[in-house]
Amino acid sequence: MAEITAAERVALARHAGRPGTADYISALFTDFFECKGDRQCREDPAILGGVALYKGHPVTVIGHRKGKSLQENMACNFGMPGPEGYRKAQRLMRQAQKFRRPVITFVDTPGAYPGLEAEARGQGEAIASTLSLMSALDVPVITVVTGEGGSGGALALAVANRVLMLENAVYSVLSPEGFASILWKDSSRAGEAAEIMKLTARDLVALGAADEVIPEPQGGAHENPQAVFVAVDRALSYALDRVVREGDFAQRRYEKFRGMGTPRSRKEGL
């Protein structure tokens, strides 16, 4: 079997039939109770969150939601949250801290929405304050990058003790299209950009930005969602056990991100 190119993985990560956060919640968790709204002005469906049981224990689940039909896609703004979505996530994270339950996040977004109202309501501030809050949570935090990890809008849900990535998921500083258009003033060279950006799951593990690759069925996650749920469940449960066993959640998470790109992270990665 020929190696899948980075550009092909980008296409798989964006595949319309790919399982999303809602699918993982119904497959892996029971008794899900959705919590809506940022308590300030709006409910942002681009982020789905709530409380559920994972293997019988309460957890807080938060993830990007793209929606399945065109109508859902529109309602969820294609998984591009506004500041209200991140503020809702913060609210749920604070509750997780309060009730001492782990936080599990699913990342799948082209990025935070670049819109007029999003800017007016402080998209930058919303992401920044989510990052700082998440970095200090004294409960276990596990992230699964299931599809597209687009820039700061993805990272805002991914300051985790363990960051797991599906084999064909991608995670990058900006989209290959954006990258190509800045670098070569030509967004049609996105495929080329994908190859040099080092955005695949394996690239990220090598760079210390992700911890583990979760294998996908041949042809991609949409070919056999059941198999993917089993694989994600196994990896998630293992990661959660490990993080719980290690303890010292905030400190370990701090050290992990403190070392990003510096010799400390290299040591950790070995």
């Binding site: 970095s135 820039s151 080092k198 760079l207 998470r253 990003m260 790109g261």
Partner: peptide
């Protein structure tokens, strides 16, 4: 851009340090 995902991670690193 030229530092890819590692540049993105600096957002978390700096924010975490400021939180502390």
């Amino acid at each position: 851009m030229q530092e890819g995902i590692l540049s993105l991670m600096q957002m978390a690193k700096t924010s975490a340090a400021l939180e502390r």
